[in-house]
């Protein structure tokens, strides 16, 4: 079956200060596919992801969602996209439950407590539902951020190093989540330095370094 290309990047250029990180970068991603962004430290992986989320604006080129530039279709794009960055985006003063429900409210959705608790338990956080996130370990906080990703119900996941701080079980859990998401027709753009075992998943790879100005010369 020929699936439509939902997310595409065209001639992206990203500059950090005086330095151009990459230029002319482009790709297209179909439903049910995973795009693995590769590259060494400082080559612009996170910058690329931030361009894709719409948090940053490219120096040139554009990102399109369902054929429309995300600048123009921002509302729809942000409703269908979820992002987990370096920072987890959870509040230390709140319990995981409160974090999840507030985040849903901020996306304009209602999330009842039972559903939130179920998602958190599914990620192995059943015993810390009512503890403030301050006392949770780094890996546990990462899991809360991933739980927020699940409750967002988004079509496209953009994940910046989702595996940092996770133990072996956590990594296996993320792999399972990714597989389920992709099998259901979802899409993922992610970076990671750790090996991933994703059987039966079509992984598309992109090297940010290939689009560095020096490499093209």
């Amino acid at each position: 079956m020929d699936l439509p290309t939902l997310l595409s990047a065209h001639d992206l250029e990203c500059a950090r200060g005086e330095r151009t990180l990459f230029t002319g970068l482009g790709f297209g991603l179909e439903a049910g596919r995973l795009l693995l962004v590769q590259g060494g430290n400082g080559q612009g992986k996170t910058s690329l992801l931030r361009l894709l989320t719409g948090l940053a604006t490219p120096a040139a080129g554009e990102v399109r969602w369902r054929g429309e530039p995300i600048r123009r279709a921002r509302e729809r794009y942000h409703r269908e996209m979820a992002y987990v960055g370096h920072a987890n985006g959870i509040k230390e003063e709140f319990t995981p439950l409160e974090n999840l429900r507030l985040e849903a409210g901020l996306a304009g959705r209602a999330l009842d407590e039972a559903a939130a608790a179920q998602t958190l338990s599914g990620l192995g956080l059943a015993r810390c539902l009512d503890l403030p996130a301050r006392v949770l370990s780094f890996g546990q906080r990462r899991r809360v951020a991933l739980a927020a990703l699940l409750t967002a119900g988004a079509l496209l996941w953009i994940l910046d190093e989702p595996l940092t701080g996770l133990d072996v079980h956590g990594v296996a859990l993320v792999e399972e989540l990714l597989r389920d998401h992709l099998a259901a027709g979802g899409m993922v753009v992610m970076t990671t330095h750790q090996p991933l075992t994703l059987d039966g998943v079509q992984v598309q790879k992109i090297r940010v370094g290939d689009w560095a100005p020096a490499a093209r010369r």
Binding site: T53, G54, L55, R74, E75, R76, H78, R79, M81, A82, Y83, G85, H86, A87, N88, G89, I90, K91, E92, E103, L106, A107, G108, A148
Partner: peptide
């Protein structure tokens, strides 16, 4: 803590 980014990524 990154929650500002999340709030800006809200469809609202």
């Amino acid at each position: 803590d990154g929650s500002l980014e999340q709030m800006l990524l809200s469809p609202e």
